[in-house]
Write a protein that binds this DNA or RNA. Structure first.
Lengths: 153, 153
DNA sequence: TTAGCTTTTGCAAATCTTTGCAGGTGCTAA
DNA sequence: TTAGCACCTGCAAAGATTTGCAAAAGCTAA
């Protein structure tokens, strides 16, 4: 099945993700590439329903269950980051090397990248004081961003 | 409707929670007190299904929807902390004053308390560098605890 | 103590998410 | 290039969570 041609020039994150999936022995089905492409093309974090709707418009036979399974696969394999906002889960591609974390504004819903360096001291203190090895790969904090703070009257 | 008598002597967290609910104008229905009591009596964090099962054994008419609504109310009002572990959500009472955070072991599923002080530097750096005000009230980290680390061969 | 207003509950239905299964399809090795 | 196997997909059904609504019950004020 050929769903779409390779109109993905310059999509570095997309290419990285494909490489990771292949490395780990996962099959590159058109459905997976489609979902991946949908997420890659989305500017911000994107929810299951949006992924489904956008992808289905390209390939109408796509099943919602496949989207769920695909997204969970991508998450477990490390290709994307899952951000839990309240009760809503959204997703965003992750780059190959650099894990980065997220700050999410509760008011305007924008996300901001956060360098891992901000969490290093925290992580080190847990290891040192409790011998607890935290997994901060998919770390996200919610809060209020600077724009929304200044808009408060 | 009277479900159970006041066998709650010394349950400080429970009493605090009741006070907070009353303060905020929520009705203290037997169902709510029952759910609260169930969570308070649970030694560790507890899931919706467990809350439901345990509470229903005391008051069989209790509906699952009520448990969901009650737990969400408690969370929004700040009476309990919701911990998202993977796909599972669990709950734990919160004391009136002292918020504390959680470390959760992915392997043995035990939780450990974490003093807020460990996150203060992190929080301060976000405020300073990005003017981003993180909400760390319900903070939980997953990882591997010291026991499980030592059990690895 | 009671009346009455408003919130809350239980039920049932809607929605969201996961899972089992049989057929279809990517990938590997020849 | 093809054959064959293991993995994936779509479908349908199960399971989990949320929501609308009418009846029931908590709380306040008299």
């Amino acid at each position: 099945m050929q769903i779409f041609a390779g109109a993905n020039k310059g999509m570095t994150h997309y290419d990285d993700a494909v490489a990771i999936l292949r490395e780990k022995g996962n099959r590159l089905t058109p459905q997976r590439l489609l979902v991946l492409s949908t997420i890659a093309e989305s500017r911000h974090h994107i929810g299951i329903d949006e992924i489904y709707k956008a992808s289905k418009s390209v390939y109408p036979y796509l099943d919602l269950a496949t989207v769920y399974r695909t997204v969970h696969l991508f998450r477990d394999v490390g290709v994307l980051t899952e951000i839990g906002i309240g009760d809503r889960h959204t997703y965003e591609l992750r780059t190959r090397d650099g894990q980065h974390h997220h700050m999410l504004c509760r008011q305007c819903n924008k996300t901001f990248s956060l360098s891992p360096h901000y969490l290093e001291a925290f992580k080190a203190s847990l290891v040192k004081d409790f011998n607890f090895e935290p997994d901060l790969d998919n770390f996200a904090v919610a809060g209020v961003c600077t724009d929304c703070k200044s808009q408060r009257t």
